[in-house]
Structures are given as C-alpha cells and as structure tokens.
C-alpha cells in the first residue's frame, strides 16, 4: 500500500468503519448506562436558588474553593489541555471544512499561527500531565493501562496533526493519513474507555447537582 492508497483508505473505508463503530459503541454504552434508571427521591425537596443539576453542569467546570491551590497541576494542566484540544479540534480551518462537508454548518476558524501556538502549548501540557500521572503518588496508584492508552489515543491525533501541518518527520501524505488513522482509533476507543467521560460527565454532574440540589446545597 503506497501513501496515497493509505490516505484514500483512511479517508474512505477506514473512516466509514471508525464512525460506524463510534456511533454503535456510543449508543450501546449510553443506553446500557442510562436505562439502569434510579429511584424517585421521596423526601420533600428544599428549594434553593442555584442548587440543581443544571447549575452543577456549569459550576463544576470551575475549581471548588481552595482546590486550585491544592492541585495546581491537575487544574491548570486539565484546563489547558482540554481547552487546547477544543480549540484545535473545532477552530482549525480544515476541521471546520470537514464538518461543513458532512453537516453543512460552518463557523469562522482561527489563523494557522494561533492554532500552531495552541497545539504546541497543548502538546507540552499533555506531556506535563503524563509526567504528573507517573509522578503523583495518587495518580500513579490509580492509573491502569486504560489511563495510559487514553492518554496516547488523545495525544497522537494532536501530534500527528501538528507534524502533518508542519511537514515534519514524514511526508505530508503519510502524516495526514496517520493523523486521520489516529483520530479513527480515538473514535473507536472512545465509548469503551474512560474517554466516554466527554459525554457522561454532563449526566454525572447533573445527577450530583440534582442529589444535592434537592437538599438545597449548590454543589
């Protein structure tokens, strides 16, 4: 298989399979999780402004009192790399074109130079976060193969995308193909690893906010 064949495969058959498995896995997992249901809370609720599942979905994005000082690496690292991923995924012009070609919606992108800078910062932060996972006693204790796999699956698309755009290491075609392939691996793995948190965290926050919100505690 030469590089154009490789690129054609990942853009064609490969992507079809990956997107198919992603949708399949995601629906299966979400149905599996949320049809477990829960009992209705029969205790009379205490209504307090700002205490609800919806509030918690938003509020939990901010560090709780005094936690920022306790775990700066987790918070700043977490913020930077999540934000960086968001920006590079959704504001890089070719990605927007991709979405437009699929769904017909588009929005303005950011200049390449900005994307470059964000990517470098994000890559560096992800390395720092990995280092922290290996170094921090709690994180190291909790970490399983799945954690390192999820890290790699997130890091690779960013790295290959950057190398492709910058024409580093391998010819552009091969790098672009590897980039798409790495995204496909990420898509396939997402529903079956902790990466599913990108979706379930909203429900989890909602449940937490709802449970406490009924008692009148904004969490």
């Amino acid at each position: 298989m030469n590089e154009i064949e490789f690129l054609t495969w990942v853009r064609g058959t490969g992507l079809n399979i990956a997107l198919g498995l992603f949708v399949l896995g995601m629906l299966w997992r979400l149905v599996e999780i949320y049809t477990l249901g829960r009992k209705k809370d029969l205790a009379p609720t205490r209504k307090v402004a700002g205490a609800s599942g919806w509030h918690t979905i938003a509020r939990r994005s901010m560090p709780p009192h005094s936690m920022l000082k306790r775990s700066p690496v987790s918070y700043f690292g977490g913020y930077i790399f999540h934000l960086g991923l968001f920006i590079t995924v959704f504001f890089f012009a070719p990605h927007i074109k991709l979405v437009e070609s699929l769904l017909g919606i588009s929005w303005p992108g950011l200049p390449s130079q900005v994307i470059d800078a964000v990517t470098v910062v994000t890559l560096a932060t992800m390395l720092l976060v990995l280092f922290d996972r290996i170094n921090n006693p709690v994180k190291r204790f909790l970490s399983t193969f799945g954690d390192y796999l999820a890290w790699a699956l997130t890091f690779l698309p960013l790295l290959t995308g950057f190398l492709a755009v910058k024409h580093l290491l391998l010819p552009y075609t091969t790098m672009l193909a590897l980039h798409i392939l790495s995204v496909e691996l990420l898509l396939i793995a997402l529903p079956f690893t902790k990466l599913i948190h990108v979706v379930t965290l909203f429900a989890s926050r909602w449940y937490n906010g709802d449970i406490s919100g009924k008692r009148g505690v904004p969490v």
């Binding site: 079809n16 997107l19 198919g20 949708v23 070719p94 074109k97 070609s101």
Partner: peptide, 15 residues
C-alpha cells in the same frame, strides 16, 4: 482533501 468520501455510510446501521 479534508473531506472524506462517504463517512456516514454505515452510521445509520451502526446506530
């Protein structure tokens, strides 16, 4: 180049 051929091909069935 950034556009895949027919990526939503299996999505219906997969869903």
């Amino acid at each position: 180049l950034s556009t895949p051929a027919n990526p939503l091909k299996y999505v219906g069935a997969a869903a």
